[in-house]
Computed example of a mutant assay.
Amino acid sequence: MTEPELRDKEQIILQQVDSGNDDVQKITQATTLENHHVTYAFKKLEELDLLTVSKPDGTVERIIDGQKRVFQHPKQAELTEKGEHHLQQADTQELDEYENLSHHELVKQVHRLEQELAEVRESFQLFREQVKRELKER
């Protein structure tokens, strides 16, 4: 049986559920995903038997952006056995990608990733400065 092809969003959601962020609100707070993306992915992942999704009754109280909020309990997900197996397979495949590289190839890859990280840091710093300037002008 082949593993289903999942989009990055769905893979992220499986990882979030595995790490304890098991409802729509927790996932949207921990990621850049929006409610409707998470809800859609829950439905798809449930159809693939990777998650079981439920809608608990009642309300939930949480601190969001420093404020206490009370709202209807969001949809909640739990990994199925097939979902756990899928995550284990994905982890193994990611490791296999590097396992077969020579020492020289690994060193090249590390240098490339370090350069990429430096560029991202520089871009982020420029972005941070732009935001600060924009906020000062308001």
Rank of each mutant, 00 (worst) to 15 (best):
residue 4 P to S: 09
residue 4 P to R: 06
residue 5 E to M: 05
residue 5 E to W: 08
residue 7 R to T: 05
residue 7 R to D: 05
residue 8 D to W: 15
residue 8 D to T: 14
residue 10 E to C: 03
residue 11 Q to H: 13
residue 12 I to Y: 08
residue 12 I to F: 07
residue 16 Q to C: 05
residue 17 V to T: 01
residue 17 V to R: 03
residue 18 D to G: 09
residue 18 D to F: 13
residue 18 D to K: 14
residue 19 S to D: 02
residue 20 G to F: 03
residue 20 G to I: 03
residue 21 N to L: 11
residue 21 N to P: 02
residue 21 N to R: 12
residue 22 D to L: 07
residue 26 K to R: 09
residue 28 T to D: 07
residue 29 Q to D: 13
residue 31 T to M: 02
residue 31 T to G: 03
residue 31 T to L: 02
residue 33 L to Q: 05
residue 34 E to D: 09
residue 35 N to Y: 15
residue 35 N to P: 11
residue 38 V to I: 05
residue 39 T to R: 10
residue 41 A to G: 03
residue 41 A to R: 02
residue 42 F to T: 01
residue 43 K to F: 02
residue 44 K to Q: 07
residue 44 K to W: 03
residue 45 L to D: 03
residue 46 E to M: 11
residue 46 E to Y: 10
residue 47 E to D: 12
residue 49 D to N: 14
residue 49 D to W: 11
residue 51 L to I: 02
residue 51 L to N: 04
residue 51 L to P: 00
residue 54 S to N: 06
residue 55 K to H: 10
residue 57 D to W: 01
residue 58 G to K: 04
residue 59 T to K: 11
residue 63 I to S: 15
residue 65 D to P: 11
residue 66 G to L: 10
residue 67 Q to L: 15
residue 67 Q to K: 15
residue 67 Q to W: 10
residue 68 K to D: 11
residue 68 K to M: 13
residue 68 K to F: 08
residue 68 K to P: 09
residue 70 V to E: 06
residue 70 V to Q: 06
residue 71 F to P: 09
residue 71 F to K: 09
residue 74 P to D: 07
residue 74 P to N: 07
residue 76 Q to S: 11
residue 76 Q to D: 06
residue 77 A to R: 00
residue 77 A to Q: 00
residue 78 E to R: 12
residue 78 E to A: 14
residue 79 L to P: 01
residue 79 L to T: 00
residue 79 L to C: 02
residue 81 E to C: 07
residue 83 G to L: 05
residue 86 H to I: 00
residue 87 L to Q: 05
residue 89 Q to V: 08
residue 90 A to V: 06
residue 91 D to F: 14
residue 91 D to G: 15
residue 92 T to P: 00
residue 93 Q to R: 15
residue 94 E to G: 14
residue 94 E to I: 12
residue 95 L to G: 03
residue 95 L to R: 07
residue 99 E to Y: 04
residue 100 N to F: 09
residue 100 N to Q: 11
residue 100 N to P: 03
residue 101 L to Y: 08
residue 102 S to V: 06
residue 103 H to Y: 12
residue 106 L to I: 02
residue 107 V to R: 08
residue 107 V to W: 12
residue 108 K to P: 08
residue 108 K to L: 09
residue 110 V to T: 05
residue 111 H to M: 09
residue 111 H to W: 09
residue 112 R to G: 03
residue 112 R to A: 04
residue 113 L to P: 01
residue 113 L to K: 05
residue 115 Q to H: 15
residue 115 Q to A: 12
residue 116 E to N: 08
residue 117 L to Q: 13
residue 118 A to Y: 14
residue 120 V to I: 05
residue 120 V to S: 02
residue 121 R to Y: 07
residue 121 R to F: 10
residue 121 R to Q: 08
residue 122 E to I: 07
residue 122 E to L: 10
residue 122 E to N: 12
residue 124 F to A: 05
residue 124 F to G: 00
residue 124 F to L: 03
residue 126 L to R: 14
residue 127 F to R: 10
residue 128 R to F: 09
residue 129 E to L: 13
residue 130 Q to K: 13
residue 131 V to L: 01
residue 132 K to V: 00
residue 132 K to C: 02
residue 133 R to E: 01
residue 134 E to H: 10
residue 135 L to C: 04
residue 135 L to H: 03
residue 136 K to G: 00
residue 137 E to H: 00
residue 138 R to M: 10
